[in-house]
Design a protein around this nucleic acid. Sequence first.
DNA 1: GTCTATAACGTGATAGAC
DNA 2: GTCTATCACGTTATAGAC
Lengths: 210, 210
Amino acid sequence: MAKSNDTGKIDISTEAKIKEAARTVFYRKGFAATRTRDIADEAGINLALLNYYFRSKQKLFEIIMIETLSGFVQNMLIVVNDEKTTLEKKISEIASRYIDLIIKEPEIPTFIVAEIRSNPNLLLEKLPVKKAMANSILSKQLQQAIAEGKITEPNPLHFLMNLMGLIIFPFIAKPLLMGGSDLNTPAFNKVIKERKQLIPIWIKAMMKAK
Amino acid sequence: MAKSNDTGKIDISTEAKIKEAARTVFYRKGFAATRTRDIADEAGINLALLNYYFRSKQKLFEIIMIETLSGFVQNMLIVVNDEKTTLEKKISEIASRYIDLIIKEPEIPTFIVAEIRSNPNLLLEKLPVKKAMANSILSKQLQQAIAEGKITEPNPLHFLMNLMGLIIFPFIAKPLLMGGSDLNTPAFNKVIKERKQLIPIWIKAMMKAK
DNA sequence: GTCTATAACGTGATAGAC
DNA sequence: GTCTATCACGTTATAGAC
């Protein structure tokens, strides 16, 4: 439990400290390359406490993984199922929210991609992205736009690949595109922020292209 | 050295067998999660031979990594610096070649992305993608198109992110988008192959959008 | 709850026979 | 060149004192 102490700062429980440290290290290095000692050092606690609170490295990892994935997907589902907004508004909302989210934690996309490779079947059945998309309000709005002839490409899977790719790919490919390892350089972030406005324009143009 | 034997099949040297096995296992699991015993088993040889031929797991990995990266980048540079082709032709060539290449070895994009995270500074100085692009024929053609007012978005970095993202992202995100772990399902490949035609159309539309 | 010490195991690498 | 046996070490996890 977090509670304030007499310095006025927030007093974070040992359990929470370990979890936060685990998140940091797992995000940066992945499951296989992180050592439980790295997490203990990062948390400023003793190695034995990790097992006391979380039983094993694997259990701790799964907690981080589930929280990360569900946070990442839920973020989208909220926007995608809003009954009050137009298709165009949803697209710019998704672009804007994800870009802000990933700028804050730029390691998340590569973490998810890299770790799902090792764990493929375990968690994905619980996160039916495709099915959730197929039943969404956004999907209905897409179908309607197709029926009205406003869109030329009828496969929603292409739409999803394009939108997510335009948003997420630059972060994943940054080391290749820009060189260097720092995922949060100002020059890069400036270009990325431009994309909040550009992606909706691009997607609109793509959907009408033929 | 590969030489034919009396069965008519190709006789592959032990060294080559180990390298191929290493490629397979490293692509699937990454450096940190692969065990040298996995590679030896995959190659059908003894563990000691791995060290006899390649000295260490690290050395073997670096060979695979360098071959993979340079193959991946060179493939693009050939197209991008062809003086005889138009800008439009280059875009469809890149899309077509990369999609074919990745369908053959669908683990490569995630492998590269995941491993560069661990090795960020080591190899990237030798692979200046951004600089190579900046000096390319394609880049000159882009500048000319901008000067002639045929393109609205003047930042070539967006162009590169968009083109590579539309091509590569679906492979990286497949487990999330489609569920399951097999990267080479027919239904997925069918959708992907459509993109060989669609991406050039989309890119063209995006570049003119405003 | 938190620590030190240590057990139990897996892994990379090598020695040495053939 | 190829194998078996083994070493040396790092890592996860636990026992037990406080």
